[in-house]
Nucleic acid binder design. Structure first.
Lengths: 124, 124, 124, 124
DNA sequence: GTGGTCTAGACCACG
DNA sequence: GTGGTCTAGACCACC
């Protein structure tokens, strides 16, 4: 079952977008596998303390992208192809890294300063 | 005059938030100094292809934070104290790094993998 | 439910101000009572033919004044204390009367002429 | 010369509209006559403490309505026909009275209460 | 030309 | 369905 243990809501970004990203990250990390069962809308909404409709919106978008499948019994399951995995991984990582680099460069930090800060905070 | 040359709009994040961040990054990088002139609402809105009101909202928030001075009918100027500079720098950097680390960890990447990717993308 | 039957938009005065005034007048007249339901933003906006956001602005200001309670996802209700009632009544009436008198005096009308015109137009 | 002695700016109504109304009221009251000289933009702007452009906007509108005429020497003069006088008087008075009555009725006041309050405040 | 404000429409999270 | 917020365009007073 997909874990939402380390999931923290960020302010200013739509919640359903954050849920989608979290699930995609689980896919990339290998934590979420093909055919894994997805938490029900109700269960997840009470777990995260947000509205079922918001969960529904996230699931709907994943379904449209072909990553999630509804099956009889009202349960939903992941549907991940190897190509999906690679595509998503590259997209997520490069997106994050590029945004991060742009931000760091905008503040005139050097690669050395950034890696130093990064290593320090990574443990911490 | 404040430069918006390397400014690219990201989808999903409120535009006025991005403008605020860009200006704060300029302050931290030393590119933007106290008393620097701020582009007018109209000039910047046509440059970025967005509505003047969106610029207005960003400037208003910066003014409320004491980093900018608006005077009706006249141009606007930055108003930066040395204390501001440090505070903003720390806030911006730690915020970015923490979000970045959380995202990378969520994908099960190691610090070694991340630094490698980072160094590779930093040039290029 | 609050009525907007006799509400007519005047040109030149901000719409949201007119809405606030209309509601306050209803409070003073006794037509609007504590805990009365307020028309939703959408309902009122279509009824009056104006943008929901304009209604929102009026409601927000009434909320800031403590006369109205908004709850996200739910309906909004009036929240009127007896003290509010008197304060609002006095403010509204004296404001209107003073403006009216200033205008009539500016046209050199006498109190007799004005009361005559007033009584004539009051019926009719 | 037109007097602006009892002129008080009201908040929320465009200044140039208020100037136009004041001048029209002067016409109705008989204080302002045909061929009267109008204060220069600069003089009036310093007298009222507002921007010359705003005066200009009011004068322009009066000119478009045919109530004001520019003549050689950069001075402006009133240009009032008897018909104008009647038309303006009726418009101004009925407009004010109707708005006033509507407001008083909205608060459930009777004609007797209103005339009483009016007479009291008229002296005061 | 400048900034301030009002109106408008779309999208979000929520009950 | 509800209210909250972001973006957009027009108008005002001002330098």
């Amino acid at each position: 079952m997909i874990s939402f243990e380390n999931f923290k809501l960020i302010d200013g970004v739509p919640i359903y977008i954050q849920i989608i990203k979290h699930i995609k990250q689980g896919i990339v990390s290998g934590e979420i596998l093909d055919n894994d069962e997805v938490p029900s809308r109700r269960a997840l909404s009470t777990l995260l303390g947000i509205n079922p409709n918001t969960i529904q919106k996230a699931y709907k978008e994943l379904e449209d992208e072909g990553l999630l499948e509804n099956r009889p019994g009202a349960k939903s399951f992941m549907s991940i192809n190897p190509e999906d995995l690679e595509r998503i991984g590259i997209a997520l990582i490069s997106q994050d890294i590029e945004a991060f680099i742009q931000s760091m460069k905008a503040m005139n930090l050097t690669i050395e300063e950034v890696t130093l800060l990064l290593e320090k905070k990574w443990r911490g």
